[in-house]
Design a protein around this nucleic acid. Structure first.
Lengths: 313, 313
DNA sequence: CATAGCTATAAGCTGTCTTTATGAGTCATG
DNA sequence: CATGACTCATAAAGACAGCTTATAGCTATG
């Protein structure tokens, strides 16, 4: 099809002129000068090989050829215009968030309702893949990742530190008469003992935990599984506080020590720099950052209260 | 409508890429490099605010937004393409010729049948206006004009000289015992005596025709009316030979003298330079020029024969 | 008549788009 | 595995389309 269409710029100009039947008005609509319009029409007429307008002193008129052409061209541009706005608004209605499983289940799920209340026209599609997602390859608008916070071509906002501290069920702690010092933990089953976080934390605690094998990375993304086991009393897990705020608050888990490790990694909100101004992305970003801020304050509050309680109790 | 459509160049590129699902192939189709395609797509994606293609290692894929967009865009371009070719071929089917009345009736009409036999798909619309036509203002493809042969922006081909010589009916000549020398004409009614052609011709003949008033221009275009009167025997007309070949041949008119005036004006085929390659114009031009050539040869032949007949008779 | 309103044209500049050249990633293959 | 073939991305530089400015010409209108 369409072997060498006439220049589209000129076609666009023709469409406007045909509607207005005036070079001057068309120029105004298109935001260019009358001379430019004249130039384009002349160009198109030479290309088509036929006069498109008859020039009369104070007005112009479509030639037969022009009359045949104009309605179709106008239609075509209308279709293009509609297609773009439909595509845009269609896409505007669905926000696809790729997130780490634990973050989704232990942090986002609880709060997402509020976002949907605030933006009823926006449907959120959660994609909980553990892979690092690549915006160039997947149909994703925004993502939550953990890591160092530097990815090329992306805008990032820190949500909270991926810190880590041991947690366990009150019952398990009671089974050995309470956990009083870090070394006590070694008397209990350690969930995922190969996680580098354990090694780091024990080092921080000044405890020799040489027997623990250690991998180079942490299994952050899968904290949820270890957490479930810990809640069931099967062992001690090393978890990120922010993600288990609820469990700590209602006592399903306890955090025996204030000592918290931090290897500099964090949870980040990430999206392509080029899309920073897309409304739905902006909306989600602003909501999420505000939500993080609120949560941070609440937790600070809660910890202070807990501390006071411990001190006085 | 269409407040700032995304750039059409990019849209065009998008259309091709969406069809091929390949930047490289689209580039080939569009006659540009793969880099240019990549650039345009990136541009469009930023403009739309959404990824349009997912980049996989050896192939690409439309995103949701892209899928919504592609069919409409393809349709739109198909419409544009069809519109252009329809307009062109529609216009190709009708050739509008603007011609001087005398030329149409006394020269073209007789020969036009042959053209229509040769190009059965081309309808010819004759527009016999006496005005000088302006291609910018009238829906005319090609014209026959008389004059000096220089009009700006047009291509011209000389058809034949607008020469002039007296002609009259045999009966009228016989009424004064035959016309033997130029001065004899003055004893007969002169059709349109103010025509400058008369003055010129008598001057050429060495006859003092001082009593004839003279305008500055000739009434070339209206020769037919004078000719009709001359055929009816009402007087002597000064006419262009080429246009009355038939009348001279069948004896309705006679040309008493070989003496022919020529003020340098001619009949011309004229069309806008910019349209010189339009097929229907090319076809008509070539046919007409060939026809003129044939006619010229025939006339030369006929005159020679007449001369021989006179000499020997 | 003179003015206002329209299009045409010429010349020059600007910015878009294109090319060239290169890189980087992935799949097939011996 | 290592290599080659094929993909898209990117950077830099160049070309040229298309825009603007400025001016002229035309004609209906008051």
């Amino acid at each position: 099809m369409s072997f060498q269409l006439p220049p589209l710029t000129a076609t666009r100009v023709f469409e406007a002129v045909a509607r207005h039947l005036s070079f001057t008005k068309a120029a105004r609509e298109l935001g260019m000068t009358q001379a430019a319009v004249s130039y384009q029409i002349k160009l198109l007429e030479e290309r088509v090989g036929a006069q498109l307008f008859l020039r009369h002193p104070r007005h112009i008129e479509l030639t037969e050829v022009g009359q045949r052409l104009a309605p179709a061209i106008t239609d075509a541009f209308a279709i293009i215009g509609e297609a773009y706005s439909a595509a845009r608004s269609g896409a505007e209605g669905v926000l696809c968030v790729s997130t780490i499983l634990t973050f989704a289940s232990n942090w986002l799920a609880r709060r997402l309702g509020a976002f949907q209340m605030a933006y009823p026209s926006l449907a959120v599609r959660l994609d909980t893949s553990s892979r690092l997602i690549d915006f160039a390859r997947e149909d994703v608008d925004i993502a939550i990742r953990s890591g160092g916070g530097k990815w090329p071509g992306t805008e990032t906002h820190k949500l909270f530190s991926a810190d880590f501290t041991p947690m366990l069920s009150p019952a398990l702690a009671a089974s050995i008469g309470g956990v009083h010092k870090p070394a006590d933990l070694l008397r209990l089953p350690i969930m995922d003992p190969g996680d580098i976080w354990w090694k780091e934390w024990f080092k921080l605690a000044g405890v020799d935990a040489g027997e623990l094998a250690s991998r180079t990375a942490s299994s952050m993304g899968a904290q949820m599984y270890e957490a479930s086991a810990a809640i069931a009393g099967h062992g001690v897990a090393i978890l990120t506080r922010e993600l288990f705020q609820a469990e700590l608050a209602d006592g399903r888990l306890i955090q025996p020590f204030d000592l918290v490790g931090d290897d500099g990694h964090s949870y980040w909100l990430v999206y392509p720099t080029s899309r920073r101004n897309v409304p739905k992305i902006k909306a989600f970003r602003e909501w999420l950052l505000a939500e993080v801020e609120t949560s941070r304050k609440e937790n600070t509050e809660a910890r202070r209260a807990a501390e006071v309680a411990r001190a006085s109790g």
